[in-house]
Simulated assay, not measured.
Amino acid sequence: MNKFYFLSNNNDINDVVFLIFQCSFIPKFAISIQTRYEDNNGTTENCLGMTPEELEQREVDFLDIAYDEIKPHHYKEAEDPKFFKSQKTGRGPLVEGWRETHQPIMCCYKAVSVKFEVWGLQTKVEEYVQGAIREILLLGHRQAFAWMDDWFNMTIEDVREYEREMQAKTNIKLKSTIESVEGSNEDKNSDSSKPQTPKSPKTPKSTTSTPTAEGRSWFNWS
């Protein structure tokens, strides 16, 4: 399954990236993402140089970082481009139709290909992964815009240092999560041999919580 994403952003960056993700224990599963940034609002027909066959197969999807909906548990008002205004640059908030009128503007072109060559599961898995990637791209570019005052005027050395810092924090978080899951499994195995005491019903949680700007969390796939 191949999809082509257009993500316009109110920034000015120019770069090309090609990534391939594979899993050693699922050899028939692979994700490839090709990226190019251009100073326009998504008007380049074939900026990634696709072949005629690839162009025929691609499905084009324009992502609007301000007005496309995201899942409620990912929403934070402080990261909503419809409300954010940069103190350093004066950019924002993004009003309806901003892609046609706002300057400066950048478009992030992405060609995302997902392959899961397992009979009976291929279509469902590929569609699920494409949906998850779309959500990640949309949320990530919303955050990139809303966090503008944090990265504006950063040097390449600053960026590399930030990458190293976030890599270390991510590794710590992953290690903590794995240890927590393993500990939980051990507790369950231990408790399974003990007599079970009936549990009191839990009080339902409110679903009307108000989004806040506190914390910048890692992406949750759920």
Rank of each mutant, 00 (worst) to 15 (best):
F84L: 03
Y5H: 06
V129L: 06
I136K: 14
I133R: 15
C47P: 10
T207N: 09
F116H: 12
T170M: 09
I133Q: 12
T210I: 05
S222E: 11
A144M: 03
R99V: 10
P201W: 05
Y109M: 03
E38T: 07
F6N: 06
T203W: 01
S113N: 12
G183K: 06
H102L: 14
P195G: 01
E45T: 12
N9Y: 07
K3H: 13
I65D: 03
A132R: 15
E38D: 04
R160C: 01
R164T: 02
S192V: 04
T207H: 08
M166T: 15
R164W: 07
S24V: 08
L7W: 12
R134H: 11
E161D: 09
F62S: 07
F6E: 13
R36W: 08
D149V: 10
D64N: 05
N171H: 08
Y5L: 05
V16R: 12
K71N: 08
I33Q: 14
N10C: 15
I178T: 05
F29V: 05
F145T: 07
S184G: 12
S113W: 01
S8W: 09
I133V: 02
A213D: 13
K175Q: 00
Q130G: 01
G92T: 00
D191R: 12
L63Q: 08
I65T: 06
K88T: 15
K76R: 10
I20A: 07
F145H: 02
E53G: 04
S206K: 15
T35Q: 12
R134Y: 09
W218F: 10
A213M: 01
S206A: 08
P211C: 03
F145G: 13
W218G: 12
F6D: 09
G131V: 02
K169D: 05
E165N: 13
T177G: 09
T51V: 08
W218C: 10
I13W: 14
I26N: 11
G97D: 01
E163I: 07
S32G: 06
D187K: 14
T207R: 14
G90R: 00
R58N: 04
E77G: 09
Q22C: 07
I31L: 10
I156R: 15
V181G: 06
L94V: 11
N2D: 12
T208Q: 15
C107S: 02
F29R: 02
D158M: 09
Q122T: 08
T208E: 11
N171I: 04
E100M: 09
D12M: 14
W221G: 00
E117P: 07
E157K: 12
K194C: 00
D191F: 04
W147M: 15
N9L: 10
